[in-house]
């Protein structure tokens, strides 16, 4: 059972190669910016910027838009609720059903903003950065706080362990489910309680096996003298190159440009 976590799209594009630290900070800046503009021109300009990113990342547009599926329902509900509950003037009305024009505007802005928000994180991080690199980037960004007792390295280590063991445990869950089914366990029929009992017959062995793996891993790390982050070297250290500086500059310029359109034009 091959298994990849999340939506990472493997490709060798300039955007894929940008340092994860630059991408994490960039996505934060853009996310704040997204809440500071609402005029259609600014929205359009920002959408164009995202299209450029899609081209640079060499990811099929269909795939990028597919990442919107989980929040489509929420965006739709925000749009409809805004139209139904907004103030006058009415776009259309019949007895108690009134469609508000300002509500339509707010609703469209909010739905579009929600989509742009997701697309920004997806393009900058999820689609173009492996989860392990994101963990590395977060560790590096939080490293300055280590002197105040913040366990940046340990958190990143635990994150890497989590990512590493998802495929292993997923396969194990699959095996246990099949084994319990062959013994007559039932997960799909009966009431909620019956189903919950069926699931517990999977969860308990899965958790026991997870505990065993944690114990083995601790023994293995102890045997190799793991002693935390201090002085530990990396196989692939993060290096901030010119490309990363250019990327950061581009993000700052886009944010400034969009806000200028919003307020001056």
């Amino acid at each position: 059972m091959s298994f990849t976590i999340g939506n990472y799209y493997p490709a060798d594009s300039p955007l894929h190669r940008v340092d994860p630290r630059a991408k994490i900070l960039g996505s934060l800046v853009l996310m704040v910016t997204l809440f500071l503009f609402s005029r259609p021109v600014a929205m359009l300009a920002y959408t164009l910027f995202l299209l450029v990113l899609v081209a640079v990342a060499r990811i099929p547009l269909r795939l990028v838009l597919g990442t919107l599926r989980p929040i489509l329902m929420l965006a739709l509900i925000a749009l409809i609720a805004n139209i139904l509950t907004g103030p006058e003037p009415w776009l259309w009305q019949r007895s108690f059903l009134r469609l508000s024009l300002p509500g339509l505007e707010t609703g469209l802005t909010m739905a579009l903003r929600l989509c742009l928000l997701i697309l920004t994180t997806q393009l900058l991080l999820t689609l173009t950065t492996t989860p392990i690199l994101i963990a590395d980037g977060l560790e590096a960004l939080f490293a300055p706080f280590t002197r105040f007792g913040f366990p940046a390295h340990e958190l990143a280590m635990m994150m890497s362990i989590a990512l590493r063991f998802v495929p292993t445990l997923a396969e194990e869950a699959d095996k246990i489910m099949k084994a319990q089914s062959s013994r007559g366990a039932d997960y799909d029929t009966g009431g909620v309680l019956a189903r919950a009992r069926g699931l517990i017959s999977v969860l308990v062995p899965l958790f026991v096996s997870a505990l065993k793996r944690a114990d083995e891993l601790a023994t293995a790390m102890e045997a190799r003298c793991y002693r935390g982050g201090e002085g530990r070297t990396k196989l692939r250290p993060l290096v901030f190159r010119r490309r990363d500086a250019l990327f950061s500059l581009a993000v700052a310029l886009v944010a400034a440009f969009v806000l200028t359109i919003e307020h001056l034009l």
Binding site: I5, D174, Y226
Partner: peptide
């Protein structure tokens, strides 16, 4: 000089990582 972390601390660290993996499995597989 090259003394490792205590086994208790290590077990806590690996257990936290693995329980996080379990949570992701619950989310992704089921």
């Amino acid at each position: 000089m090259n003394r490792g972390m205590a086994k208790t601390q290590l077990l806590r660290l690996t257990s936290i990582g693995i329980f996080a993996a379990l949570s992701l499995v619950m989310l992704l597989v089921i």
